[in-house]
């Protein structure tokens, strides 16, 4: 039986008996997962490849719906409603729960337009409001100083680390409640990685963060809570420090000491 701690803070998301089955698969890829996600904290998901951590992350903004035939069961509660309901407005949900991907995904447009993209989707047309909010988002993403003089340039001219911060700026510009990070530094060099990690920690004042990482040190450095997953199950969820120093489950201990992975 998994050992899941109770958290003191308010919950941003509450996962209950959640199961996820990919199209055509016989067995669910995620099995009976129950976990709280603390508000204004960072929750890291770790585990060997194929353990389901990314699958779980992509359930929070219903990304799986882009590919028909996948099945959700159970409940993910967000702001008092079950977001797995078929009535859930996915467009609305995705503006509330943003996502950052493994690789920087700068759109084929200017730096400014990239950050303004989500705002424009929401119907903001007023130029001064747009530029104010773009500036604020870029400042919050620690990118403003580097790009303020070339906002009209193609975003693909930026370095990898800058592009990833641009994607973060783009995601926070629409002021989401939750941000999902899917191995955000896996394509970056160590210095850019450091920058992103610092940024993630700063961001938790405003948003609740869930981060999937392949790197245990990263989880230890940035997160408040860590969940260890294995073969589609959540084995253990604890305070990051406790989980890494005194894991309650044998599997967790074997994983963090490098016995498998």
């Amino acid at each position: 039986m998994a050992s899941i701690i109770d958290i003191k803070e308010e919950c941003a998301l509450q996962v209950r008996d959640f199961e996820f089955t990919y199209k055509g698969a016989e067995a669910p890829s995620l099995k009976k997962i129950t976990m709280p996600i603390a508000k204004n904290s960072i929750t890291a998901l770790i585990g060997p490849s194929g353990c389901g951590k990314t699958t779980l992350l992509r359930s929070f903004n219903r990304m799986h719906d882009l590919y028909p035939g996948n099945v959700y069961n159970g409940e993910i509660e967000f702001e008092g409603r079950n977001i797995l309901s078929s009535k859930e407005d996915l467009i609305q949900l995705r503006t509330q729960i943003g996502m950052i991907f493994q690789k920087p995904t700068a759109f084929p447009m200017s730096i400014f337009d990239n950050v303004a993209y989500g705002l424009r989707l929401q119907g903001i047309k007023n130029k001064s409001e747009l530029s104010d909010r773009v500036e604020k988002a870029l400042k919050d993403a620690a990118l403003w100083k580097e790009v303020s003089d070339r906002l009209k340039n193609d975003a693909n001219g930026l370095s990898g680390g800058q592009q990833q911060r641009l994607c973060i700026a783009r995601a926070i510009a629409v002021e989401p409640e939750v941000l999902l990070f899917d191995e955000p530094t896996s394509a970056l060099d160590p210095i850019s990685t450091q920058g992103i990690e610092k940024l993630v920690i700063e961001l938790k004042e405003r948003v609740s963060i869930i981060i999937v990482t392949h790197n245990m040190q990263q989880a230890a450095r940035v997160s408040d809570y860590t969940g260890f997953m294995y073969l589609g199950e959540l084995i253990e969820l604890g305070n990051t420090e406790n989980l890494f120093v005194t894991p309650k489950e044998k599997l967790t201990q074997e994983y963090i000491t490098g016995k498998f992975g």
């Binding site: 995705r94 995904t105 989707l121 995601a171 629409v174």
Partner: peptide, 23 residues
Amino acid sequence: ILKESAYALGGTQWDVIKDIIIP
């Protein structure tokens, strides 16, 4: 991943087609 990023910002299929895929 580029298309998913636009969906993740609340884009519709048409938004993704005209703003991401076509450019």
